[in-house]
Computed example of a mutant assay.
Amino acid sequence: MPVIRVPRRPTAPRLMAVTAAVLLGLVGWYLFSGRGAGLLPRDSWGPWREKRVHDWSVRVRVNSWSDAAEADGHYGKADGFTLKAYGTSATTTSAMDGVRFTLAPDGELTVDGPRAS
């Protein structure tokens, strides 16, 4: 009895296409969820906005492509901080006066502590 051979379809191109689609989806999610905001182009960041919080000078900018914000604060030359809220809020406490700064990914800066009231 003769053996009938059915030609096999190549699965490698399909597997590579599915893998590429999944990888592109994961990279897109990583970048635009805010977690990979440091990898986005400089043009995606908005301008720095100046805020005066008691004796602190704070600059905040928000990324227009993803859920991310950055803040840079200075208390003269005595103390300073940098916050990067990439997808989740970031918090720091100043060494000098114990003021706690919290930056949300939408660029909202909240202040809490002994001199914050």
Results as ranks from 00 to 15, higher is better:
V60H: 02
L103T: 12
A78I: 14
D55R: 04
A69D: 08
R9N: 09
A20W: 04
W29A: 11
F32S: 08
T11Q: 13
T88N: 10
V22C: 10
N63M: 07
D97Y: 13
G80A: 07
E108A: 09
L23S: 15
M16T: 08
G76K: 01
A12Y: 05
S117C: 01
R52W: 09
L39D: 13
A12Q: 09
W56Y: 12
A69K: 09
R61L: 10
R5M: 13
A37G: 15
A37F: 15
A85P: 14
L31N: 12
T19M: 14
W56N: 01
P47H: 11
P13D: 03
M96L: 11
L83C: 07
G25L: 02
T88V: 12
S94Y: 03
S94A: 11
D97T: 14
P13N: 03
A71E: 14
L103Y: 11
L109V: 06
S89Q: 11
V18E: 10
G38W: 03
P105F: 06
S89T: 14
T11G: 13
A68W: 01
G34I: 00
S117T: 12
F81Q: 03
L109H: 09
A95Q: 14
L24K: 04
R35G: 09
P10E: 00
V18C: 10
D112A: 15
E108L: 05
V99N: 15
P2V: 12
G76C: 00
R52K: 14
P114N: 13
W29V: 09
V62I: 10
A37H: 15
R35P: 00
T19H: 05
T11L: 15
S117F: 05
V22M: 12
G87L: 00
L24A: 10
L40F: 02
G107P: 04
P114A: 15
T110G: 00
M96C: 02
M1Q: 04
A68P: 00
W48N: 05
V18T: 13
V60D: 08
T88D: 12
L23G: 14
W45I: 10
G46Q: 12
V53L: 12
